[in-house]
């Protein structure tokens, strides 16, 4: 375990605390939400994690366009891949929450539809990558597409749902969780969950990147 870096262990400790504490520690008793409010610790950190990974992916997309080093493309793709995984888990946990509070797995909520569009945009990123054979062309075209995707994703998730009626807290005139949670009981688990899942996401991406680096090195040796 000595060779495992501290931030990876910190991520594990924080998520383990959030998983166990999220089920056992007290939560505010709110109408409709009731005990399902505990899903805040599992659903929302996925979106924070996804956004952090997408930002990292975009940073490396810029690096791809600024330099000819293809290793930046490996970073950019790996971060986007893990972000898509987080988004899928975020949608799955959200659907379970929606069924228990709104009565249906999927409603015509602008945030849900925006999240689905955002996910499809990033799914298209991988389709685009798969359709180009030349490695350099693939890196540059997908990096350009990636840079268009991030602002679109932010607008879809954080801006558009706030402009119209939405069932989500903090959107469409609905109060956010901050105004409910006056005693900050949620924050004690929520913030560690967010930081922990972000760290775990970067760890998974780190493993993918190192694996691809080894593959590239072996290909060059052949």
């Amino acid at each position: 375990m000595k060779s495992i870096q501290w931030w990876k262990l910190a991520g594990v400790a924080l998520v383990l605390f959030a998983l166990i504490g999220g089920l056992l520690l007290p939560v505010p008793q709110l109408p409709i939400l009731a005990q399902s409010i505990r899903n805040l610790y599992y659903h929302v950190p996925m979106w924070f994690g996804m956004l952090s990974l997408l930002i990292a992916s975009s940073v490396y997309a810029v690096k791809v366009l600024m330099s000819k080093d293809l290793i930046n493309d490996v970073y950019s793709e790996s971060f986007a891949r893990v972000a898509l995984l987080y988004g899928t888990i975020g949608i799955a946990t959200g659907m379970i929450w929606a069924k228990n509070t709104w009565g249906a797995y999927w409603t015509n909520d602008p945030k849900l539809n925006s999240a689905a569009i955002g996910m499809l945009m990033y799914a298209a990123y991988f389709v685009l990558r798969g359709s180009i054979e030349d490695e350099e062309k693939k890196a540059r075209i997908s990096a350009t597409y990636n840079l268009f995707c991030l602002p679109m994703f932010i607008v879809l998730i954080f801006v558009l749902p706030r402009l119209t009626a939405s069932l989500h807290p903090g959107n469409g005139g609905n109060p956010g969780f901050n105004s409910y949670d006056l005693d900050s009981r949620l924050r004690m688990v929520f913030y560690p969950a967010v930081i922990g899942w972000i760290l775990i996401g970067f760890w998974i991406a780190n493993i993918q990147i190192r694996l691809k680096k080894i593959e590239l090195k072996k290909e060059q040796e052949l």
Binding site: I4, K8, I20, W203, I207, R210, L211
Partner: peptide, 19 residues
């Protein structure tokens, strides 16, 4: 849930060490 997560972490650690 805790066991499942520890299992996933164990898998990540083993991958990390192999790499």
């Amino acid at each position: 849930i805790a066991v499942l997560f520890i299992g996933i972490v164990g898998y990540l650690v083993s991958l990390d060490l192999k790499l």
